[in-house]
C-alpha cells in the first residue's frame, strides 16, 4: 500500500496538527473553501499547510477532470438519444409564443395574427443567413396590440472573427427589415443591431480572413 509512503499526509491522516500550525485538516479544508480569506499568516507561512492546501486543490481539480473525461468518452448516443428526445418532446409543448401581433384587416369578425415567438424565429433565420453571423436574442419594443404603431426591434448578434462588423450588422439590419416588412404586420421604426460577441473561427472551419491570408501567402511564394 502507498499509505506509508507519504509520511506528512498519510500517516494517521493529518487530523490533529499540520506542520505544528495548530490547525487540523478540517480547518485547512474550510479555509480553502472560504477562498483562503481572511488571510491567515499562520497557515500561509507554514510550508506544510501550504502543501496540504495545494494537494487539496489538486485533487479537487482532478475530480472535475474525471467527470470531463467521462463525458468525453461517453458515446453521445448513449448520453443523448432517448432522454434528449424526451426533453425535446416536453419542451415542444411549452413554446415561448409571447404576445400576439394582429394583422390589420377590414373584417372585424376574424383576426389574423402572428406570435412574437414566430417573429423572433423569422429574425433568427434571416440574420443567420448573413455570412459569419449568428443571431442571439431579439426584442420587440412597442405596442403590439395596435396595428400600425411603430415598434423598435433590437437584435444581438455574434460575428465570426475575420468578418467586418459594420458590414455584417448593416446586412443583418437590411435583411431583417425586408423579412419583417414582407411577413409581418409590424411597422418598424428602427432595427438596432448589437454585436455582443466575436467568436473564434472554430476548429474545423477557417474564416474568410484566415483563408485570404493563406491565399496571399500562397501568391507571395
Amino acid at each position: 500500500m502507498a499509505v506509508t509512503m507519504n509520511e506528512n499526509i498519510t500517516d494517521g491522516l493529518p487530523e490533529d496538527d499540520i506542520g505544528g500550525s495548530g490547525y487540523t485538516l478540517d480547518d485547512l479544508s474550510a479555509y480553502l473553501d472560504a477562498g483562503r480569506t481572511p488571510y491567515d499568516p499562520v497557515i500561509e507561512h507554514n510550508a506544510e499547510c501550504r502543501s496540504v492546501l495545494a494537494s487539496l486543490e489538486q485533487v479537487g481539480r482532478w475530480s472535475r477532470e474525471l467527470l470531463a473525461g467521462e463525458a468525453e468518452t461517453a458515446p453521445v448516443e448513449a448520453a443523448g438519444a432517448g432522454w434528449m428526445d424526451g426533453v425535446l418532446g416536453a419542451i415542444a409543448r411549452e413554446v415561448r409564443s409571447g404576445r400576439d401581433i394582429a394583422y390589420p384587416g377590414p373584417d372585424l369578425r376574424t383576426t389574423l395574427s402572428i406570435t412574437e415567438g414566430a417573429v423572433r424565429s423569422l429574425i433568427r433565420a434571416t440574420g443567420d443567413e448573413v455570412p459569419g453571423v449568428l443571431v442571439g436574442r431579439s426584442r420587440i419594443d412597442g405596442p403590439l396590440d395596435a396595428p400600425g404603431e411603430p415598434v423598435t426591434v433590437t437584435v444581438t448578434i455574434s460575428v465570426r472573427f475575420g468578418y467586418a462588423l459594420q458590414d455584417a450588422s448593416d446586412a443583418v439590419r437590411t435583411s431583417i427589415a425586408e423579412t419583417l416588412a414582407r411577413h409581418t404586420p409590424l411597422a418598424i421604426a428602427a432595427i438596432d443591431v448589437v454585436v455582443d460577441d466575436i467568436r473564434d473561427s472554430g476548429d474545423e472551419e477557417l474564416g474568410p480572413l484566415a483563408s485570404r491570408v493563406a491565399d496571399a501567402g500562397g501568391d507571395a511564394r
Binding site: 470531463a68 463525458a71 448520453a79 434528449m84 425535446l88 415567438g117 433568427r124
Partner: peptide, 24 residues
C-alpha cells in the same frame, strides 16, 4: 440566449454539449 428566445435547435445543441458531463 437563443434558447431563452425559444430556439429549440439551440437548446438541442446545449443538451448535446453539456448532457454527457451532467450525466457523469
Amino acid at each position: 440566449q437563443r434558447a431563452a428566445d425559444g430556439d429549440e435547435v439551440a437548446f438541442a445543441v446545449i443538451m448535446r454539449r453539456h448532457g454527457p458531463y451532467l450525466k457523469a
